[in-house]
Nucleic acid binder design. Structure first.
Lengths: 180, 180
DNA sequence: GTCTATAAAAAGATAGAC
DNA sequence: GTCTATCTTTTTATAGAC
């Protein structure tokens, strides 16, 4: 269990934040270095190229996603409800990493696309034993995807149609009732 | 009803295609001009700047979305089912325009974000009279968003988990049963 | 309307000092 | 490990010919 250098993590954090807040185009090496408080040369010591930086972010996603699934499996309120609640963007490390990697995926990074598919398969496997049939499973996954899609689009937007507390609870209850 | 010049439409088509297939970063003026079979100078005669090009695409989205809603309202199989079927990406002009504009939205184009929100509100208004309550309405919208989210991420990916015919029909039936 | 040529800025990446 | 300086390529945009 090697601890990665602090500067390296700071660079990944800054890269993530710019990707999520301003998009892929704004997430240049220069801007990322500035956001992490290092110089471009300093950044390039830790990541030899732009694609190495992107690959490191994808690796981080895989680790966080596995941790999330492990956590949800132990949840008391049920796996379906816990999964949907976890899909509502709360700014958690996993949430922002998914959003950041989906920006990369949408700009032609095939590794990022493949990783997002793997994450979705992790969820699918985890949910299968807790849904009544394949159609119900797909419904849960699509509602979860819908929550992420809204997060993807609403971050730049102030008056987002994001579901609030009681409305989200009602939705989760309804999906649980229709699928388990 | 003025007919826009053919070259202008060809440029918008090419811009859309590159945005969807390769992402925002690849959709440069140069690549767009090449895709449309004109020179950069020719493109810039029709669109004075990159942002003018983007704005024109957003305008096209608003027009197509309104047409889609008008069509769905007249559907025989029911508004909820017709809406979900329409959310499955089939490469229709509306589908690809939504995907293209969402690429712009995710790269900091606030006009694009606002337009996508307006489209979603159009759908919401159209669906409200055909769903049993607000929770059901949100469920339909989220499943629809989920279908788009998958389309957004899967286009670059060959083995997409896109729902096929019978599975999609079963899903639509289940959502209709749970929400109307 | 459409083209070529070119300017001006920004991008990723390298070299080498400290 | 981290920095500054510099090179190369790409991108947006302008100028002006046809």
């Amino acid at each position: 269990m090697s601890r990665p250098p602090l500067a390296r993590e700071a660079v990944l954090d800054a890269f993530t934040k710019i990707l999520v807040d301003e998009g892929e185009r704004a997430a240049t090496m220069d801007a990322t270095a500035r956001g992490a408080g290092v110089s471009k040369g300093g950044l390039l010591y830790h990541f030899n190229s732009k694609s190495a930086l992107e690959a490191a972010l994808v690796e981080r996603l895989e680790r966080l996603a596995q941790e999330d699934v492990d956590e949800i499996e132990k949840s008391a309120e049920g796996v379906v409800a816990a999964h949907l609640r976890s899909s509502q963007n709360t700014g958690s490390p996993l949430d922002v990493t998914i959003l950041a990697v989906s920006r990369l995926a949408q700009n032609g990074n095939d590794t990022a696309s493949a990783s997002l598919r793997r994450v979705r398969e992790l969820w699918e496997e985890s949910l299968r034993a807790h849904t009544r049939d394949e159609t119900a499973l797909q419904m849960v996954l699509l509602v979860s995807d819908g929550l992420y899609f809204n997060a993807v689009l609403d971050l730049n937007a102030l008056p987002g149609p994001a579901l609030e507390g009681p409305a989200l609870d009602a939705l989760i209850d309804a999906v649980v009732a229709a699928t388990t």
